[in-house]
Design a protein around this nucleic acid. Structure first.
Lengths: 233, 233
DNA sequence: GAGTGGTCTAGACCACTGA
DNA sequence: CAGTGGTCTAGACCACTCT
């Protein structure tokens, strides 16, 4: 007598995923109600809910109240990236962390910054340019703009000593953020600062954070050539 | 009489998050047991568990059986990226999708590919080079290597007609994947294929998938200059 | 208005793992 | 081996939103 164990939510998830991969339910098709799946697989509805949560997080299905659960028509690969504090990243690789403030000034933000933070009209912000070093070699250059409305306290921080990145992480929790990745060629100034050849390809990580729909900071971080972002799963 | 509503899991999560942000619990500190938090906040333990799940997913806390829940010592920004099927991405932006097979050959993989898939000794694989076009303009170039052990059926697919990317997505589910992002300069051959200047900075997305610890495919996709990957939250 | 997912609860047992 | 998180259950009510 082969008495099956009661299914765990991972098994339920994999079973439903198999239904989709096998073509039993195709792109856009509606899956049975949670309660029916629970009945079929002999488990509680909450177990199905937990499984569906995972499939939904992974981009496999779409769930709507009243509308049911559907196979997502455009499958995506969903990758989760950890972007560490730069100091932790360098020290984690065994490097000695160094920091150098390049420039700091109150100024009206240029158009790309306005667009990033979502402002129509310019308000004065604090611009901070800084270098992060690993064993005295430039590792990352950051061009940061900080809102004086949501983070006025930044003006009383000595940014030659304290890293704006870390001060903000510790003192300015955010409710929403956005990240962009793209490649640029090193312009003459960046080439000198980062000690790389002019035109060298560099990975850019742009991050903007908001609290209650008000921007806190936007930063463009340019990484030294050879730098990679990694995501596993 | 201000009678508080019973807390939902998001409120429980935010409350705990506030404890951390306010410094009441610092990096590495142990938080109370779930059951105690549930008692303090007057909700069920499962509500606390749901909240903690979210904080754990977001990289804010570490949870261990018997070891309790601790504030993660190295805060990270955790970003979720959707990497769409290239066809869907182009059509989603209103472009007309085009595909061109550049080269296809059985070969022994070079060292970087071996390293990506985690093999010690080379086995023969299928190499496929292809271009994805948007309105006849090169959008992305992919250099793909496919395992003939886990995906032998690929040999009977006409890759001049059917896109390897899409065939694999539909036919080869994977259990694990890895993604890397970095920047490269266009070499002469790539410059011609992508119709860009030699040395142009390009974003590379490298993906490898495995099923049950056996590699299926690894692909290096080079995107046209100006391409951005975006992540919101 | 009615059907479906979203969430909460109280309780139970299991599975790790640190003391 | 005992304490903590991980998971499952059965039931209830709520909140969307489609018809």
């Amino acid at each position: 007598m082969t008495e099956d164990q009661r299914l765990g939510w991972r098994e339920v998830r994999d079973t439903i995923h198999d239904w989709i991969l096998s073509g039993r339910y195709g792109a856009g098709d509606k899956l049975p109600r949670d309660a029916d799946i629970a009945g079929d697989l002999d488990c509680a509805r909450s177990t199905v809910v937990r499984a569906m949560q995972d499939l939904s997080d992974a981009g496999v299905v779409d769930r709507r109240r009243r509308g049911g659960t559907r196979v997502r028509p455009d499958p995506v690969v969903r990758a989760t990236l950890d972007i560490p504090i730069t100091r932790a990243e360098i020290e984690g690789k065994g490097g000695r962390y160094g920091y150098r403030l390049v420039r700091q000034a109150r100024a009206l933000p240029p158009a790309p910054v306005l667009e990033a933070v979502g402002w129509d009209a310019p308000h004065e912000m604090l611009q901070v340019e800084a270098l992060h070093l690993s064993d005295n070699v430039p590792h990352m250059f950051e061009d940061r703009w900080i809102s004086l409305e949501t983070a006025p306290e930044i003006l009383s921080v000595d940014l030659a000593v304290q890293n704006a990145n870390e001060w903000l992480v510790l003192n300015k929790p955010y409710s929403r953020f956005e990240v962009r990745f793209y490649a640029v060629a090193a312009d003459p100034r960046l080439a000198v600062l980062m000690q790389v050849a002019e035109g060298a390809p560099m990975l850019v990580i742009e991050r903007t954070t908001w609290i209650a729909e008000q921007p806190i900071t936007t930063v463009k971080s340019v990484a030294r050539p050879g730098f990679q972002l990694l995501s596993r799963s």
